[in-house]
C-alpha cells in the first residue's frame, strides 16, 4: 500500500455528542465568513463543519478601524461582531450555506442573557446542525465578557437556551478566566452538549510612534499559533474535569497541531486564524491528519481523543 491508500483507509468520522462529522475539521467562527467568499475556489464539503460569524439579534456595524494588528506568531482583532443580524442570516446566508454539503454550526452572541435564548429559539426550527454560544467575545462592551467568566451565569444562559431548543448546544468558553474547568462544568450543568475552547485571549498592541494602541478599540483578542500552548493546556484541564465532549481550537496551523488537540481530549477541532494566512490549509487538513494517523498505526481519527498521558508527579 502507498501512503495515499493507507491514509484513505483511516476512518475520519468523529462524534460530538449525538452529532456525527465526516471528519474532525471545522472552520472557526469569524474567520470563514459565511463560506461564500471561499466557495468559488474550494470544495467546502471536504470540511467536517463550518461555524458562522457570530450572530446577534439585530444587525451590528462593528467597531471602527483599525480592527486588526499583527503580533508575534499571531494577531489581535477587535471586529466587534459585525454581522447582518439573525433574520438576514436565516433568509440570505443559511440557504446557501446548507448547499455546501458540510455541517453548519450557528455561532450566536447576545448582549444580555435573554438574547441568547431568543437567538437559540429562532434557530430551533432551522436546518443548522448545532448552536454555538459565544460567551467569550471580548470586543463587545455590554455584558458578553462578564457572562463568560462567571460560572453561575454560564450555567444560567446555557440552561435558558437548553429550554428553547433541542439542537445540539455547544458552549464556547473564554480563556480569560482563572479556572477554565469550573466554567466548563457550569456549561455541563446547564445542559451543554459540548464545550468549545478556546476563544481569543485579551491583548493590547501599542504604536510607539503615536503613543496609542494600534486598535481603535484599544484592546483586542489574540489568536493564532501564539495561543496554542494555552489552548492545549485548557483542553486537557477541561477533559480531566468534565464528561461532555470538547471541540478544541487555538492556533491550529497544520495537521500535527490538530492531532495534539485531540490527544489532549478534543473530539473535533476548529481552525481559525490560519485560514486568514493560508486559506487552502483547512481543506488539506482532513487528508493530512489521516495520513499521519496511518503512520502512527491508527485506523480511526477518533482514537486520538484523550490519549495524552501526563507524567506522574515526583
Amino acid at each position: 500500500m502507498n501512503d495515499h491508500e493507507r491514509s484513505s483507509s483511516v476512518d475520519g468520522t468523529v462524534r460530538v455528542g449525538d452529532l456525527t462529522f465526516d471528519n474532525p475539521v471545522i472552520a472557526a467562527s469569524g474567520t470563514f465568513g459565511f463560506g461564500g467568499e471561499l466557495a468559488p475556489y474550494y470544495d467546502l464539503s471536504v470540511l467536517g463543519g463550518i461555524c458562522t460569524k457570530g450572530l446577534t439579534l439585530r444587525p451590528r456595524a462593528g467597531n471602527p478601524p483599525p480592527r486588526v494588528a499583527e503580533t508575534a506568531s499571531g494577531m489581535l482583532n477587535a471586529v466587534g461582531l459585525q454581522n447582518p443580524g439573525i433574520e438576514s442570516f436565516l433568509e440570505k446566508e443559511l440557504p446557501r450555506m446548507l448547499s455546501y454539503g458540510s455541517r453548519i454550526i450557528a455561532n450566536i452572541a447576545g448582549q444580555e442573557l435573554c438574547e441568547y435564548a431568543e437567538l437559540a429559539r429562532l434557530l430551533d426550527q432551522t436546518e443548522v446542525d448545532a448552536v454555538e454560544l459565544n460567551l467569550s467575545c471580548p470586543n463587545v462592551s455590554a455584558g458578553c465578557l462578564a457572562i463568560g467568566s462567571e460560572p453561575h451565569l454560564i450555567e444560567e444562559v446555557t440552561a435558558a437556551c437548553r429550554e428553547v431548543t433541542d439542537k445540539p448546544l455547544w458552549v464556547k468558553l473564554t480563556p480569560n478566566v482563572t479556572h477554565i474547568a469550573l466554567c466548563a462544568q457550569a456549561a455541563e450543568r446547564g445542559g451543554a452538549d459540548a464545550v468549545v475552547l478556546i476563544n481569543t485571549l485579551l491583548g493590547l498592541a501599542v504604536d510607539l510612534a503615536t503613543e496609542r494602541p494600534i486598535l481603535r478599540n484599544n484592546t483586542g483578542g489574540l489568536s493564532g499559533p501564539a495561543i496554542k500552548p494555552v489552548a492545549l493546556r485548557m483542553v486537557k484541564e477541561v477533559y480531566d474535569h468534565t464528561d461532555i465532549p470538547i471541540v478544541g481550537l487555538g492556533g491550529i496551523a497544520r495537521a500535527e497541531d490538530a492531532l495534539e488537540f485531540m490527544l489532549c481530549g478534543a473530539s473535533a477541532v476548529q481552525v481559525g486564524t490560519a485560514s486568514l494566512v493560508d486559506p487552502g490549509m483547512i481543506f488539506r487538513l482532513p487528508g493530512e491528519m489521516a495520513e499521519i494517523a496511518s503512520q502512527y498505526g491508527y485506523s480511526r481519527l477518533a482514537e486520538f481523543t484523550g490519549r495524552l498521558q501526563f507524567w506522574e508527579r515526583t
Binding site: 469569524g30 474567520t31 470563514f32 465568513g33 467568499e37 471561499l38 460569524k53 462593528g62 467597531n63 471602527p64 478601524p65 483599525p66 480592527r67 486588526v68 494588528a69 494577531m75 482583532n77 471586529v79 459585525q82 494600534i214 486564524t273 485560514s275 486568514l276 494566512v277 486559506p279
Partner: peptide, 17 residues
C-alpha cells in the same frame, strides 16, 4: 488602504467607513 488580515473577505478586519 486599511490594515488587513485575510485580504479575501472572510475576517471583516479591514473595515472602511
Amino acid at each position: 488602504e486599511s490594515r488587513m488580515a485575510c485580504g479575501i473577505g472572510v475576517c471583516l478586519g479591514c473595515a472602511v467607513p
